[in-house]
Amino acid sequence: MIRVLVAEDMHVVRGALVALLGLEKDIEVVGDCADGAEILPLAASTAPEVAVIDIDLPGKDGLTAAAELHERLPGTRTLILTGLGSPGTLRRALAAKVGGFFLKDAPADRLADAVRGVAAGRRMVDADLALAAWEGDGSPLTVREAQVLRMAADGSQPDEIAARLCLSAGTVRNYLTTIVVKTGARNRVDAVRIARESGWI
């Protein structure tokens, strides 16, 4: 029996994941939580073989929690679920030593198979995500988006960036929103960190 922990902040989604995995004869859900900060204590008390973790959790994001589990409880492998399939997000997940990386809308049987694969020590990555990363040219950002993010990284505010690039402040804010989505970041500061670590800016 594969012992599984589920971490997902949306109650309906978490309930569905627990129910679907619970239907599998060889999988037992031993705990679930809605906050990233709860994952390590819950894993320490329930000893799951696999933690299925949403990438975007309150308290502590999924990749940070996964890296913490890898360091503190190496017997618990991690399977990250995401709604965003950007190559940059996949690279961050692999860097965090996760065992698997799947889209939230993957079919239930594929998710169960991914849990089994991760429990067996294999790295399970959604085929569509892997293909996107393989075909990507590195940075998901356009030249202009990278320019805007570099200026934001240096501390410039949207109105200052707009004045220097002869754009409207609204256009710059739109660029910054797009950058956060493309990099799979939580916010602008996180986007800067991801882009720098990836060599995109």
Rank of each mutant, 00 (worst) to 15 (best):
V13G: 00
G136R: 04
F101H: 04
A120M: 03
S45P: 00
S198P: 00
V18S: 03
I39P: 10
E197R: 12
D113W: 01
T89I: 06
D154C: 02
D26Q: 05
V52S: 05
A7E: 04
R196G: 02
P107A: 04
N187I: 05
G99N: 11
A153T: 07
L111C: 05
V50A: 12
R72V: 15
I55Q: 07
A191K: 13
D154S: 11
L17Q: 04
Q157H: 08
G15C: 02
T82W: 03
L63D: 11
E197T: 13
S139G: 05
S156W: 12
A114R: 01
V4G: 02
G88K: 00
T64C: 04
D113R: 08
L40T: 07
L40D: 02
V12W: 01
N187D: 15
V115L: 04
L149N: 08
L42S: 11
G138T: 12
A185S: 15
Y175C: 10
L69R: 07
L42I: 14
P74S: 14
M10I: 09
A67Q: 08
P87N: 12
R196M: 11
A43H: 08
G100V: 12
L79R: 13
N187H: 10
G88L: 01
E24K: 07
V4E: 03
M1D: 02
R188W: 01
K182D: 01
G184K: 03
E197M: 04
V148H: 07
L42D: 14
T183S: 11
P58L: 11
I194D: 09
V4A: 12
L165C: 10
D113I: 00
